[in-house]
Simulated scan of single mutants.
Amino acid sequence: MMAKLGRLPVIARLGLVHEVITKGDIEASKQFVIEPSDLNLKIECAEQGK
C-alpha cells in the first residue's frame, strides 16, 4: 500500500539499497494490495446478504 502512495516502508528501502529487491519487484507486488475501499464494499455487500 505504501508503494502505491509513493512512500516505501523502511524495510523496502533497505532492500533496494542492498539490492535484495528491485523496483520491478515492488511494482509487481502492487497487484496484490487490497484497497481499503474494496474491503468496505465487500463488508456492505455481506451485510445486505449479497
Rank of each mutant, 00 (worst) to 15 (best):
P9I: 02
E44I: 12
M2V: 10
Q48W: 10
Q31W: 04
M2L: 13
K30I: 03
S37G: 08
I34F: 05
A28Q: 06
L5A: 14
I21Y: 02
D38A: 11
L16M: 09
A28L: 06
R13P: 02
V20K: 03
I43V: 15
A46I: 11
T22L: 04
I34E: 06
A46D: 15
T22E: 05
G49M: 11
I26T: 01
K42G: 02
S29W: 04
A3T: 02
L14P: 00
C45I: 09
I11H: 03
I26A: 00
E27P: 01
L39Q: 09
C45P: 08
K23F: 07
Q31H: 06
L5P: 06
K42S: 08
S29D: 05
D25Y: 01
A46E: 15
S29C: 06
K23V: 05
V10C: 05
M2I: 10
L8N: 01
N40K: 15
L41D: 13
P9Q: 03
P36T: 07
E44H: 13
S37C: 09
K50R: 13
E19Y: 11
A46K: 15
M1L: 14
A3F: 03
I21P: 00
E44V: 12
K30L: 07
P9E: 03
S29G: 03
V10P: 00
G49V: 08
V33A: 08
Q31V: 07
V33R: 05
K50A: 09
S37D: 11
Q31T: 05
F32Y: 09
L8C: 07
E19D: 12
G49W: 12
L41V: 12
I43W: 14
G6M: 02
T22R: 10
A46G: 14
I26R: 00
I21G: 00
K4E: 03
T22K: 07
N40Q: 13
I21A: 01
I34D: 05
K23P: 03
Q31N: 05
K50I: 08
L41P: 06
I21T: 01
K42H: 10
V17Q: 14
F32V: 04
A28W: 02
K4M: 10
I21K: 01
V17D: 13
R13K: 15
S37I: 10
A3V: 03
L8P: 01
E19Q: 13
K4I: 06
G49L: 09
D25I: 01
K23N: 08
M1S: 14
I43N: 15
K42C: 06
Q48Y: 09
V17K: 15
P9C: 06
R7I: 10
G15H: 10
H18Y: 11
D38H: 07
I34L: 11
R13E: 08
G24K: 06
A46S: 15
V33H: 06
A12S: 04
E19M: 11
V17S: 14
A3H: 02
I21C: 01
H18C: 10
K50L: 11
L14C: 06
L39E: 10
K4R: 14
L16T: 04
Q48I: 07
L5Q: 14
S29Q: 06
N40G: 15
L41M: 14
